[in-house]
Design a protein around this nucleic acid. Structure first.
Lengths: 340, 340
DNA sequence: ATATGGCGGGACAATTAATGTCCACCTATC
DNA sequence: GATAGGTGGACATTAATTGTCCCGCCATAT
């Protein structure tokens, strides 16, 4: 059954909202017994006319009976509601979890995909797809998007698909180069996104970690300066979330710094910063890329991460409090809630 | 899985066509490899713009990739098509059978519901619902509808549901009263339909079987005459189909007539007439209701009958050749095809 | 090397559908 | 018999869909 639901989600994403709308109507009728059109419209937060069109469909299907005193579910309508319960749960079941997570961390929006990214690549792909959909939906003409690196971000970029070309958007890497695989570089991801959408991109050919001296020198370069200015003015920031230890290893931090991080209780990494369990930044450094103040100033910060093992790190970064949207999976969401 | 499909058919009847459309597109792409928009539009019999809107959705879902040489299914699109095969079969699987029956009997349209009416009342209900839907769809303002009696017709009437009131339609009984339960009288059914739709109706208070003498007398009555004229001018005729023996018993025909029917090879009954295996009328009589010539002249004749046991009778009446639409069930359809 | 046919994507007027809003009239209930 | 709340009809306004053309691009055949 799950399969058919998944297929429909892919094939008819625009129609799922209709389904939900109709189900809501039936469900309300199921609970209210007889009720009038206007009352129903108020309760369901619809305008009268829209509700009416839906009611006409439902009536034509013989799911509801109309009398002068109001409308009632017909026998087959009642039956349908009862049979639908588990299916709706399957289809929209994560919405409850989404709402719980959203309010727990005070976010604007939470998207949860089914599964656990730790267990299968399939779920990682789905996470990427979900992330790309979110980004697509909030993208407005003229937006500059700063993207971080990482495998999740790379998958997001690979799954990005839009109905029509973007013309006046920019994708920029949020930070400089890291000693990692080229596929996971922020630079690579920015260019991939731009290529897939017809948007433009800039690259930041600068190492992420700089001495203060080198930083000052390189910022003198006009073309670096220009890109950095654009990065810092990004309206949208998209980033992954890692656990501190893994990231420290990947970044090839010296043992000394690692020990310091452990001492400070660093748990999570995001935007190149390390966070402790309370979402406090425990390690920061000079960077040519996005600084914390730019993140705070950005209009829309989107975090993407999944897998049970990342739950705690996600909770930590969310407590930092500057994310607007979180895209995660079921397992990570549940785990994150344990660390609120 | 069948359940979820059934539910969707009830809840989202208008959206199934969209689903089919999108599946067709994907399937064609699947088979063609790379293909252009215009070529695709021609093949699928869609206009370019409509196809394009759908393609945009599919592309946004990451189901297809676009290049300068044309469009191709993406990996996940390919996967989707393969996974959908059985589901589509489930959803639209009877369409093939419908087409086979349609062309076998030279009908305008055939609707087949799943199941076998002989085995469960549930399927009889579904048959009625399907019939009522067909009638609703072909009903135009001003139409006069002549309905026959019978249990199938009664169920059809009971399931009739429309989005908005009919104002200038008439429902009339196709024939006079039979010695049967009042619920199954044509009169009852016509009035039920009218009540459910806000349309008007007339009754024919005349026994179905009349001596020539009585016939002449009663037709002198102006109000009978008026109703009969309306009946005979009906644009739409809806009728059930029975097997000859059962109907002869119900009609309380004298043994002599029964024997004659057997001798003539009467197999099926419809519109009050008896048909042999070749669809030839083997028994006719004076009636105040619809005569054969009226049926031949009617714009739209709809037959509704289901159940394996009725298969042969259905085939016989269809060979008579004046039906336009047949509404039946899976079992009856298969059986009917064996007697083409 | 070059011509050409078919490609996707952009644009836009015309048409069709959806929507908000009012009102007439009906029916239970107090 | 008044009243509140119901349905169904009507319609101007707004939004979406649709048919149609055209442009520049690329792959292929010449």
């Amino acid at each position: 059954m799950r399969k058919i639901v998944d297929i429909q989600k892919k094939l008819l994403p625009d129609l799922l909202v209709v389904m939900e709308k109709r189900y809501d109507i039936l469900r309300w009728l199921y609970l209210s017994g007889t009720i009038g059109r206007r009352t129903l419209a108020t309760n369901l937060n619809m305008t009268e006319r829209v509700l009416r069109s839906e009611l006409e469909v439902l009536r034509a299907q013989g799911l509801l009976d109309t009398a002068a005193a109001g409308m009632t579910l017909s026998e087959s309508g009642r039956q349908l509601v009862e049979e639908m319960e588990p299916i709706v749960k399957e289809m929209f079941g994560l919405s409850d979890l989404e709402e719980t997570v959203r309010s727990a961390f005070g976010l604007k929006r939470v998207i949860i995909v089914p599964g656990d990214s730790d267990t299968s690549d399939h779920f990682k792909m789905e996470l990427g797809r979900a992330g790309s959909r979110v980004l697509r939906d909030i993208l407005s003409p003229g937006d500059v998007v700063a993207v971080m690196g990482g495998s999740t971000m790379a998958r997001m970029a690979a799954q990005f698909a839009i109905p029509s070309q973007l013309k006046d958007n920019w994708f920029v890497p949020a930070r400089g180069g890291l000693g990692e695989s080229v596929d996971y570089q922020a630079n690579t991801i920015a260019s991939e996104l731009a290529k897939r959408t017809g948007a433009r991109y800039r690259m930041l050919h600068v190492p992420d970690h700089l001495s203060e001296e080198a930083y000052q020198t390189i910022m003198q370069e006009p073309n670096v300066r220009e890109v950095v200015d654009m990065i810092r003015s990004a309206r949208i920031v998209v980033h992954g979330i890692g656990d501190a230890e893994t990231m420290a290893r990947r970044r090839k931090l010296v043992d000394e710094t690692k020990a310091e991080l452990v001492k400070d209780g660093a748990l999570a990494e995001a935007f190149g910063y390390y966070f402790d369990r309370n979402g406090k930044v425990v390690h920061r450094m000079a960077t040519a890329g996005l600084r914390l103040e730019d993140i705070e100033a950005a209009g829309m910060v989107i975090g993407i991460a999944g897998g049970r093992s990342k739950g705690e790190a996600i909770a930590s970064v969310m407590r930092f409090g500057h994310d607007d949207i979180l895209v995660t999976d079921e397992a990570a969401a549940i785990e994150a809630l344990r660390h609120v």
